[in-house]
Design a protein around this nucleic acid. Structure first.
Lengths: 237, 237
DNA sequence: TAGTGGTCTAGACCACAGC
DNA sequence: CTGTGGTCTAGACCACTAA
């Protein structure tokens, strides 16, 4: 026997169902709080919390004196899950390894505004992400040692640098950008693909409270990796 | 003078600040509800709502009899905003146009399981997304007429088909996939780019309550479009 | 078993925007 | 103005679980 859901939860799901099924169209006013109070025989706080949760999720819009309305969607805001590569590879049953190619500690290049924004000394790491010994992505990363000094002594051979950073500098802000690039000869050689092959390139900048922590560019071999974003019913999966 | 924020809001921001700044590390127990009640001189409901909101956002984890703890992040779950192309182009001050190339109504191909999942008759549309008259993306789309019969008579010349669908079949579930492909000769000719150039390709399948509505593949000219995902402080921007 | 969070109540006052 | 949502209170009972 499945546990009876809380009343507020039931109210929220009922309304969600009406919206997702199309029974309630965008722009339509949904019942007032006092009407829902009567319908579910509960206090106003219970109804209010359910409607507030729906408003936070972007499904409804609440206007004083007017009521609560089904929101009009204007774009697809999707959840893009970018797991640590080491975790993902091992989750597929393959052996993960990060092969360092180069590791340099140097000052930021004054001619590069992006590097200067990261502050003084930088740790620059180039390496290959390998699954079962086969490289599937090239990583080029810069880490601001002023913010993460312990990175200078870290060993990234086992985990990916990204995974190491996630464990040492959690709760960051980040921006990820997708692009497609033709593999240059060096890239093609390292990934064992044809020169000029189209590769997905992911570029990510990460901050922590206004401090620029790291900048990474990952170039993936064709067919080896997929980025999938989903949007849907919050309780469907 | 800026409006004084609500007390619950202030509690949430205070705790968020402690987490994002690193003052409170992942795994650390944060003050109990009754301690926060005393600190802020408020009722338990106010504290509870603030902590519940943080738990919904994934910043804290709440365990009965144990307390509330700063969550340990394991992956970057980002918000990927995929706006309607027409809206985005016009937002940049350019003129948007969708140039239809082909438009066919036909039965689903029995040899293609993806098409058969969409049901009987399909509207197949090929076209070009243009900014200021210059094509920047190719779109190939299938629409299930069993679910959206009015699409058969729709005019997509002004808006993009995606925008039209968003307005007519809102609140859907969707899955978006990114890939990089080399431009084939036809693609290169249509987008006026070099054959073999690396193009970002976005493939999206959309459902509405278990009904497969549409399947679209968009191929973007290099440099013309960027997909950016963000994760960060909910109130930073 | 004791103490945490989960949920709910029956009120209250306020800000605000349609009417 | 009037009625809506926004927020808060001072209780209450319950489920769960870690000690």
């Amino acid at each position: 026997m499945t546990r009876a859901p809380a009343l507020g939860e039931r109210i929220r799901r009922d309304i969600e169902a009406c919206i997702f099924s199309g029974e309630w169209s965008p722009g339509m006013r949904i019942p007032f709080e006092h009407e829902l109070m009567a319908r579910y025989s509960c206090s106003r706080m219970t109804v209010s919390k359910a409607l507030s949760a729906l408003a936070d999720a972007g499904l409804v819009e609440r206007r004083k004196r007017a009521g609560t309305f089904v929101a009009r969607p204007t774009s697809h805001a999707m959840i893009l899950d970018i797991p640590d590569l080491a975790v993902e590879v091992r989750g597929r049953g393959a052996a993960y390894r990060f092969d360092p190619i180069a590791r340099v500690i140097r000052a930021a290049d004054p001619s590069d505004p992006g590097e200067m924004a990261m502050g003084g000394m930088l740790l620059a790491i180039d390496g290959l992400h390998c699954a079962d010994g086969k490289p599937f992505a090239i990583e080029h990363r810069l880490i601001a040692l002023a913010v993460v000094p312990e990175a200078a002594d870290a060993d990234f051979a086992g985990n990916s640098p990204g995974g190491w950073l996630l464990g040492h500098v959690p709760w960051t802000e980040a921006e990820t950008r997708f692009a497609a690039v033709n593999a240059d000869p060096v890239t093609a050689d390292l990934l064992d693909i044809a020169p000029g092959a189209a590769c997905l390139q992911v570029e990510r900048r990460t901050w922590r409270a206004a401090e620029h922590i790291t900048h990474v560019r990952q170039t993936f071999a064709p067919g080896g990796h997929a980025f999938v974003a989903r949007f849907g019913h919050r309780h469907a999966g």
